[in-house]
Amino acid sequence: MVSIACISPVPAPDDAVGPRDRARGALLGLAVGDALGAPAENMRPSEIRARWGRITGYVAEHPCGTDDTEYAIFSGLLLARHGSALTVAHAEAAWHQWIADRDEGPFRGAGFSERGTLENLRRGLVAPISAQHRHAWSDGLAMRAAPFGVFAAGRPAEAARLVAVDGSVSHDGEGIYGGQAVAAGVAAAMAGAPAGVVVASALAVVPDDSWTARCLRRAVAVAHHGERAVRSAVVIGGYPWTDLAPEAVALAFGAYAATDGDFTEAVLMAVNMGRDADTTAAVAGALAGATRGASAIPPDWAAAIGPARGTCLPSMKGHHVLDIAELLTPDESAKWAPGPAGVRDSYVLAADEEEVRP
């Protein structure tokens, strides 16, 4: 059995997708999926059909990313500052500096896990105790996990390690596993791995008997039957909360697997399944964008994505996901350096000395 702890770049023709295009595709794909899925959040497929028929593009007059995009930017800046040297203390300090200790608010659109974390930090609790709230199992880490896969391209295990460091401030258990699955999947896709290896990479970094792994396996097993089968395989009927990490991550990977990583089809399938549609479409978009590159994203969808508006996180206002992609892939010649701390990691660590700030 071939190890997927480190995945070598897949040899490709001269006109194939390059590492920087994959990075831009992953983060722009996240933002596009987020904006496409936002209007359908918390809806059932029948409700989506009654209102729009089948969603095939933006249905909002002024599409934009939600907290999913803004928190992904937050994690991207954190990672650009510290690189592979990231610690829990770094992550906790960033939460205070950029979120908890600021007067701005009211953090519109923030999920339950983020609000619980914010409250705990403001009460003086520290990580990992800051993650001890009712929604530590949410998809709030999964939605911001893609930057770790971009940074640790071809190294799913390292991507999973780093995202868990970030997530320890806000999540626990299945919430951490969901983030690790997404980060590892994006890391594999960044190396040009086929869809099956991307899924296997995600499964390899979470406990085999976890709720996340079971849901992911069920979703992928029935993916060839389409969105209704995927949804039925993982959604808990009648459960009111749609931000369960095992469910959201499985729906996203199911959409990705069903469409073999086709960007447009994967994102639209995630959107039209409803539930936490902005997050599932954001994750599917990150996976497919890393697989196919930014050039696979419809130009009109990409053009609608501007700098973050700071609706949820005022400190992220003005940052664009494509800028984060550049920060995390500074030198293509160093991109595929072997080992857990190559030239590229040294570059990112050097950026810390220049105080990368929002």
Rank of each mutant, 00 (worst) to 15 (best):
R134G: 15
T87Y: 08
A200K: 05
A189H: 11
V206I: 13
A131T: 08
E174T: 06
A72G: 11
F74W: 12
H135D: 12
R161W: 12
L78K: 05
G149R: 04
F107C: 14
Y177W: 10
P194S: 01
A145N: 03
W137I: 03
A187P: 08
G173V: 03
E92T: 03
G111W: 02
L125G: 10
A142W: 10
V163L: 15
L86P: 07
A136V: 02
A146K: 00
L86N: 03
V186D: 07
A110H: 09
P207Y: 13
P147V: 12
I129Y: 04
H90L: 06
L79C: 11
L141G: 08
A152H: 00
V197D: 14
F112D: 11
S75E: 04
M143N: 00
W137G: 02
D166G: 11
R155N: 09
G109E: 01
G178H: 02
A181V: 04
L118Y: 00
G116P: 12
H171A: 10
I176C: 06
R115C: 12
H90T: 12
A188G: 11
D103M: 13
A200F: 00
R122V: 05
A160M: 06
E92C: 11
D166F: 07
A193S: 04
L162R: 00
R144W: 02
G149S: 10
A200Q: 07
G83C: 11
C215Q: 12
A142Q: 02
Q180P: 13
L86A: 02
A131Y: 02
D208C: 09
A213Y: 13
I176H: 11
R161A: 08
I73A: 13
G173P: 14
A204E: 15
G167N: 09
Q132I: 01
A188E: 14
V182H: 10
F151M: 09
L203I: 07
R123T: 01
I99E: 12
A100D: 15
D209G: 10
G105H: 03
S75D: 13
L77I: 09
E104A: 08
P194Y: 01
A195W: 15
A136S: 11
W95C: 14
G105A: 14
